[in-house]
Amino acid sequence: MKTTMIRLAVASALALTVASPAVAQSAEERLAAYRERVERLEDQQDIEVLQATFGYYFDKGMWEEVADLFSRDGRFEYGARGVYIGRDRIERALLLFGPERLAPGHLNNHMQLQAMITVAEDGQTATGRWQGMVMLSEPGANGNWGVGIYENDYVKENGVWKIAELHFYMTALTDYDAGFSRSAIPMEGMSALFPPDEPPSERYRSFPSNYIPPFSYPHPVTGEVIEVVQPRDDISGRE
C-alpha cells in the first residue's frame, strides 16, 4: 500500500514537473486540470487541519472525539504499545493515556509540527510525516520532555479526510530534571490490561538507540525513495 502510494506520489511529482503548455488544451481540459490542482491544495490543507485537531483533542483526553477522526477500520499505533484497530477499540485504548478529559496533574501535550504531506494523484489517499514534541506529567511524578515522529496514512471517505493509520514512533523521552544526557526512558510496551489487536508493526528502541522511522515520501528534489540503514539490535535480532 505504501509502495503504491510512493509510486503515485512520484508520478504526480513528475507530472507537475513537466509544465504542459496550454496551447492544445480545450477550455474543458484546462478547467479539469485546474480543478485537480486546486483539489490537491485543498486536500493538503484539510489533512493539516485534521492532524492538528487530533493533537488538540489528544492533549486534553477527548478520547471519543479523537476516535471519531479515524476511518472505519482505522489503525492506531503509539510507540511499542501495538496496534488498535477500529474506532471503538481505539477509544478504549486511549484510556491508557489518562482518564477521559484528563484529571488534575495530568499533562498530555503532543504537538503536531512540521507537516510533510503527500497526496496521491487520485486525491483519495495521502501520507504525512510530522514532528511530535511531547510534554507529559502525572500527579506525584517528574515531568517529561519527549520527541517523536508520526508517519500516518489518510483516506478520503465520502469527500472527508480521515486518519487511516496513525503511527507515532517515539524518538526520545526524558525526565525533565535530568535531561537527555542523563535520562532515557524506554517506551511502554503492550498493555496487559487491554492488549492490542496486533503486536507492534516494527520492533525498535527509542533513544539512546538511533532508529530511523522510515520515510513515506520520496526525496522532493531527486525523487529517490529513501532506503534507511537501521541500527543493529541484539534482542530484536536486527542485523
Binding site: 512540521q114 510533510m116 503527500t118 514532528q131 515522529i149 520515510f215 515520501y217 526525496h219 522532493p220
Partner: peptide, 8 residues
C-alpha cells in the same frame, strides 16, 4: 515540504 524534508 522542501524545508521540512531537510530537517527530517
Amino acid at each position: 515540504n522542501l524545508q521540512r524534508a531537510f530537517a527530517y
